[in-house]
Write a protein that binds this DNA or RNA. Sequence first.
DNA 1: TCGTGGATTTACCAAATGGTAAAAAAACAA
DNA 2: TTGTTTTTTTACCATTTGGTAAATCCACGA
Lengths: 207, 207
Amino acid sequence: MPESSVKKPSRIQLRNRRVILDAALEVFSKHGYRGATLDQIAAEAGLSKPNILYYFDGKEDIHVTLLSQLMDTWLDPLVALDPNGDPRREILDYIDRKLKMAVELPRESRLFANEILQGAPRISPELHSHLKPLFDEKCAVIAGWVDAGKLPPLDPQHLLFSIWATTQHYADFEAQARVLLGAEADPQPRALAHLRAMFGALLAQPG
Amino acid sequence: MPESSVKKPSRIQLRNRRVILDAALEVFSKHGYRGATLDQIAAEAGLSKPNILYYFDGKEDIHVTLLSQLMDTWLDPLVALDPNGDPRREILDYIDRKLKMAVELPRESRLFANEILQGAPRISPELHSHLKPLFDEKCAVIAGWVDAGKLPPLDPQHLLFSIWATTQHYADFEAQARVLLGAEADPQPRALAHLRAMFGALLAQPG
DNA sequence: TCGTGGATTTACCAAATGGTAAAAAAACAA
DNA sequence: TTGTTTTTTTACCATTTGGTAAATCCACGA
């Protein structure tokens, strides 16, 4: 059994753990936690089921590992929001990064959405330890901008909610968008233009 | 066996089908389709599992029935968008209704979100037959307002996406919002104020 | 090349789960 | 009340699924 804290993982361990996590991301994001089976993940990874359980303690272990690793990536765009930058530009750039990430990493977006939809039973600790502090920090930054008169009065918390909701919507509800937009090749450019217009209007200084 | 097309359903049938669908909504919205079990639904409904299968052909039948019945309710706010009303007021009122519905019917919102997240495997027909025509119709209405100069240039399709995303976010990602907003009693008033400000800014006539 | 520990497979298992058959019970019309 | 139909329960079943034990294979350092 691979000892996590004693020996450093071999090349095979490193490769297979990565392969398994990638397969699991594919399957979990498509079917949700309960809907995914170890057999599916094994097939996707090109490994046998017991072999997968050789690298992870169980289905839940895989899921939690995925979510934890993903959390950091997922928060990167918000981390990059610079308190010293120009407020409007910072927020609009953040929207760009967030939409780009949702479009490029739809599996990750759906994995998170699934988990939150179910009440975040397995990621709740990470939410408190990682997301919450960052959220509070950046809300304070935005509130500071508002107080300094650099932004019109607005609610930082709900502003961030709106940004998350609108950007991730394109990944999470892709099935709906496909039906409604028809065979449109790539909705991203129009989506981005719309979001920039919308949030740009909100952030515009009155007068 | 209850014959759907021949005899009219008895009082018992009517009551039990309603009880079962309500229990199923509770369970499906909480655990997703695969995560929900007939035993859970039976327990929630206070009936035995075989008794439930006496009223429905199977798990999928219950799910599809739920989704179909829900679709109408879910589209009501958009149906009420009046082509002859004042454009800005119509859209802002629509946002009010949509947010109210998401907050009051979070189980329904999550049921839909779950289904769409999984790629809409069971509701795809309804999407094409009900949602798509209504979507196209109302997009045309909004586009007409834009063409008539009653609204600033905007993308009707992505406007509706944004409204859906932001309003349903409060139901679908409630677990996240609970963590981030702390023990705040009712986020709805601030959410509504934010959404009115945001979409109000977008819809404001330039100049 | 040989031995050892890490990696993989084979053959399972127990529990959960969707579903069924048929008997029993309840409701109801005559 | 009686006969019939509807509703409910009891007792199952086959499959799926997460997981395990043990044997086997294989990479690699000495």
